[in-house]
Nucleic acid binder design. Structure first.
Lengths: 154, 154
DNA sequence: GCGATTATCTCGCTGAACGAGAGAAATGAT
DNA sequence: ATCATTTCTCTCGTTCAGCGAGATAATCGC
């Protein structure tokens, strides 16, 4: 194996990993009557809820690159599924706050819980120094992709 | 930082990385008038072409989890875009072979080329032993996700 | 040959997401 | 204070990816 092969193999591993994660999410979504977009929205809402942030339809649509009409449809869907609740903001009554229901938390737990546990389990096969290398590596790769995205894929 | 925090941070890094890669792909796709499915199909076709394998609509649809009607639509789209060409298999004239056009190769190069170069560049900041750790780490994580997917997300 | 199987495509439909724009509430200038 | 502007959400009508059902055509097994 030459010295060029090893990094290239890592690139393919990265790609393969993202494909697997996507498929995992897609299968979970379809089992629960969710569309890919719904799952992405749910993840975003749960992240925000955990960070103690308030999400409005506008912000959600922005995060998912949906226009306002599509966002309304998405919020309607999530509300119909009992995952979120609309609530007028008393401070600024133009705004609607999206409250995450208990059911959404449970669903998120079902999605992430098991997988995260397994990932953490697999990480126990690495010592702290190795995990630190992995962290630096992932940070470096994420930085590259983020930068490339900002610059715009040519 | 406790010892539990570090692995959890790695989980979030992994997730963040896949999100960034997805967004990168989605932006590239929409810039070129492609749907997410079209890009996934293109990647699949280019991979197969590089491996010297022949792809038929049936196999492509299977890989992307589309039914036959959806697959026909997808192939129509790709053909209309001049990315692939339909060709009857002379051996088994029920089958159609999907030939990848030059244009698709160039498009794939535009998508992967720059990003891969940047990723390889960033990897030069790691010595061989570290890259080996990263490889083992990614393989372990991929294994977990693949296994979880087969078992079925609960 | 002839029925069963395989591979692809056609038809009609559903629904996610879009563009355009309406409607309500807040903000700022005069 | 009032009126124009801006902000936020939602409605309407449309487009199009993907689905289910089934038609069509070629191959294979007996």
């Amino acid at each position: 194996m030459s010295e060029v092969e090893e990094p290239m193999r890592l690139v393919h591993l990265l790609r393969g990993l993202t494909v697997e994660l996507d498929l995992f999410g897609a299968e979970f979504a379809s089992r629960n009557g969710l569309h890919p977009t719904d799952l992405r929205a749910l993840i975003h809402l749960l992240d925000a809820a955990r960070a103690g942030e308030v999400v409005t339809p506008g912000r959600l649509g922005e995060a998912l690159h949906l226009n306002s009409a599509g966002t309304t449809g998405l919020v309607d869907r999530l509300e119909r599924l009992g995952l979120i609740r609309r609530e007028r903001d008393p401070q600024d009554r133009r705004r609607v706050l999206l409250r995450v229901e208990e059911r959404a938390m449970e669903l998120g737990q079902g999605f992430f819980g098991g997988l995260i546990g397994d990932l953490l389990g697999a990480m126990r096969g690495f010592d702290p120094a190795e995990l630190d290398v992995a962290r630096r590596f992932l940070e470096a790769m994420t930085g590259v992709v983020t930068a490339a995205r900002r610059a715009g894929p040519e």
